[in-house]
Nucleic acid binder design. Structure first.
Lengths: 202, 202
DNA sequence: GTCTATATGCAGATAGAC
DNA sequence: GTCTATCTGCATATAGAC
C-alpha cells in the first residue's frame, strides 16, 4: 500500500513538473522533490525519464479521447455535436489548463508516436468528415471543409490557455480574476461564433 | 567582414535550431555545427546560450510588430483592418512556420520579459479595443469584446501551424503538399469565417 | 577570429546498505 | 521500498595556442 501511494505521488508530481517545464525542461530532481522522495526512488519506479514522461502524458490524454469518440459516434444532430465538442474540450481544459502547451510540445517532439496513440485509442475523424460534407451538400450550413472547421474550433478554444500569460497581461491588466471570468465566457462565445459563421442561429 | 558574416551565420543557424528544439532542447554544439564553426567561436560571439537565444527570439519578433502597429493606427475601416491583421499574420507565419510554437514556449517561460518587450516596441491594444467597442455600439457588428475576438482570430490563424505534425497526419494522410495547399486557403477561410460570425458580408 | 583542448557543473542513472 | 553515495556522460563555458 505504501508502494502504490508512492507511485501515485510520483505521477502527480511528474504531471505538475512536466506540464510546467516540458519534457526537456523538467528535472528528475524537481519531480522527486515535489513528490517528497529522492531521485533513486524515482528511478526505482520508473527506469528512465522518457518512460515516466510517456506514462504521464498518455495517461492524461486518454482521459480526453473516449469522450470525443462518444460524441463523434453518437446520434445527435450535427449542430448539437459541434456544441458538445466545444463544451467537452473547454470543460476539460478548465481542469487541465496547462495541457495544450504540453500537447503542442509533444506534437512537435514526437508526432508519430502521438498519432499512433490516437489511432490505437480508436479516434478517427473520417466519421465527422463525412457528416459535415453531408450537411454542406444539404445546404444546412455554409460550405466549409472539415479540416478548416476543425482548425477554427480547436484554435479558438485552445488559444486563451496557451496564450494566457501574455493575454492576461496585455488585455486584462494582469488581473487573474478577470481572466478566469474571460475563460468562463469562452464556451458560449465560441459556440455562437461558430454557429453564426456557419449561417445558423444559435 | 569575415567576422560580421560569421555572426550572421551563427544567428541564422541558431534560429533554425532554437525553432526546431526550443531553448531547453537546443544544443550549442548543434548550433555550431549548423553554422559550420565550433563551440568556442560561438561563445566568442555570444557569451551565454541565454544571450544568444534572446537576440534570436526578439530579433524575429521585432520584424512582426511594426506592421501590426501600422495597421492598428492606420486610417482604414474596421473591417479592412481585420482583414489586414489576418493577412499580415498569415503571411508572416507562412515565412516563419515554426514561430508560433517558439513564441508559445517563451510566453510561458518568461512572460514578463516578453510583455515588456512588446510595450517597448510600442504595441498597445487599447486603440483597437476602443475601435471595436465603437463598432458594436453603432450596431455595425454583432456584440463581441475585443479579447474574445482577438483570441478567436489568433487561434484560428495560428492553430494550423502549431498543430501541423498531427493535423497533417490525421486529416491529410500525411501529405505535405496537400497540407501546404490547406495553409494557403486559411487566410481567405478565416477572413470570411470572422466576417460572417460578426454579421457582415465578405 | 578561429581553433584544440580542457575545466566545470549538472542531470540521468546505478550500486549497495538498511 | 527507501535511502546515501557515487558513477557516467554530456552541455555550457573557458584557457590558451595560432
Amino acid at each position: 500500500m505504501g508502494s502504490d501511494s508512492t507511485k501515485e505521488k510520483i505521477i502527480q508530481a511528474a504531471q505538475q513538473v512536466f506540464i510546467r517545464k516540458g519534457m526537456d525542461g523538467a528535472r528528475m530532481q524537481e519531480i522527486a522533490d515535489e513528490a517528497g522522495i529522492n531521485k533513486a526512488l524515482l528511478h526505482y519506479y520508473f527506469h528512465t525519464k522518457e518512460q515516466l514522461f510517456n506514462e504521464v502524458f498518455y495517461g492524461i490524454l486518454s482521459q480526453l479521447i473516449p469522450g470525443l469518440i462518444a460524441i463523434f459516434k453518437g446520434e445527435a444532430l450535427f449542430l448539437v455535436k459541434i456544441e458538445a465538442i466545444i463544451t467537452q474540450y473547454d470543460t476539460y481544459l478548465s481542469e487541465h489548463p496547462f495541457l495544450p502547451q504540453f500537447v503542442i510540445r509533444e506534437i512537435n517532439r514526437d508526432p508519430e508516436q502521438l498519432s499512433r496513440f490516437m489511432s490505437d485509442q480508436g479516434l478517427d475523424f473520417s466519421v465527422v468528415e463525412a457528416l459535415i460534407e453531408k450537411e454542406v451538400a444539404m445546404g444546412n450550413i455554409r460550405p466549409i471543409s472539415f479540416p478548416h472547421l476543425f482548425a477554427n474550433m480547436i484554435g479558438m478554444i485552445v488559444m486563451p490557455y496557451i496564450g494566457r500569460p501574455l493575454f492576461q497581461r496585455k488585455l486584462f491588466r494582469n488581473d487573474p480574476v478577470k481572466y478566469d471570468q474571460f475563460l468562463k465566457e469562452r464556451k458560449a462565445v465560441v459556440n455562437s461564433f461558430v454557429k453564426q459563421a456557419m449561417g445558423v442561429e444559435s
